[in-house]
């Protein structure tokens, strides 16, 4: 009897907590449909040309993902399967990058981007994002490759594979699961980034989805539902991906904490 009651109590408390977690999400959706209903969404896409910003964010995100994968996979292979002087020191140094707040290096990064004349260009974001997000990808990919047996490489060498061929033909195809997780992690980091997007993309046409609402805040004071419809649209790609690849999301984001 008592255990029954404890179970009921537990379910009630959990339900209450989950409802509390849902309130802000409900508020987001509800406000976005106020007054003109679905028309708010149409408005957000046409009147403030949100489509252009979605395109910008997509271009930057896709380029960042490609670059991150290109630089992390070979590096993870080398750190995991090859022996060379300074291996551990270099790896630790890159780990340090995980800890540095982006804002703390913003002043010099602005100088660098300016010297390349990259303001209002996609590279202004793609390169710093890659630098900031690749180290975590490296940690994940190296951890994954550490679990693949080294004998595979030796077997490959006997069959006449060069080291590079064994990386390309034997290891790389096996890393697909971790590549997926790195992709999702990079997607989130790049889509959601705000600081550099605000500093580097000043031209209206070049702005990312994360900074556009600020610009239209004035316009939207009288049109809160329109703003919220825009917010839902910004969020939609992430939600769709989350629903499709839930497991990868959780693994990708929590892997660092679970491992160490």
């Amino acid at each position: 009897m008592l255990i029954r009651r404890i179970e009921w109590f537990r379910h009630l408390v959990l339900l209450a907590i989950v409802c509390a977690f849902c309130i802000p999400l409900y508020e987001l959706l509800k406000t976005s449909f106020e007054r003109h209903g679905i028309h708010n969404y149409y408005d957000a896409l046409t009147r403030i040309d949100l489509g252009r910003n979605l395109l910008n964010s997509t271009v930057v995100t896709v380029c960042t993902i490609v670059l991150v994968l290109l630089v992390t996979m070979p590096a993870a292979f080398a750190f995991s399967k090859m022996r060379f002087p300074l291996r551990n020191a270099l790896f630790l140094m890159i780990l340090l990058a995980l800890m540095i707040p982006g804002i703390a290096i913003a002043v010099p990064v602005v100088q660098i981007v300016r010297s390349f004349d990259w303001f209002n260009k996609y590279w202004a974001l793609v390169f710093p994002y890659t630098a900031i997000l690749a180290p975590f990808g490296l940690v994940l990919a190296k951890g994954f490759m550490d679990q693949l047996p080294k004998e595979m490489q030796e077997a490959g060498l006997v069959d006449g594979c060069s080291v590079f061929q064994s990386f390309l033909r034997i290891y790389l195809p096996l890393t697909q699961p971790i590549a997926m997780i790195v992709t999702i992690f990079t997607f989130l980091g790049s889509w959601n980034e705000f600081l550099f997007a605000m500093i580097f993309m000043r031209k209206e046409k070049m702005q990312m989805v994360t900074t556009i609402p600020i610009k239209f805040q004035v316009d939207f004071v009288t049109n809160m539902p329109g703003l919220f419809a825009a917010l839902v649209i910004i969020q939609l790609p992430l939600i769709v991906l989350y629903v499709l690849f839930q497991k990868h999301f959780k693994e990708g984001l929590t892997a660092g904490a679970v491992k160490s």
Binding site: V71, M93, I94, I105, V107, A131, A134, P135
Partner: peptide, 17 residues
């Protein structure tokens, strides 16, 4: 193999740091 990631690290993290 590690040159590309090191290049990003040096230019956009270590040097700014």
């Amino acid at each position: 193999y590690i040159a590309p990631i090191m290049a990003f690290f040096l230019v956009f993290l270590l040097y700014p740091l």
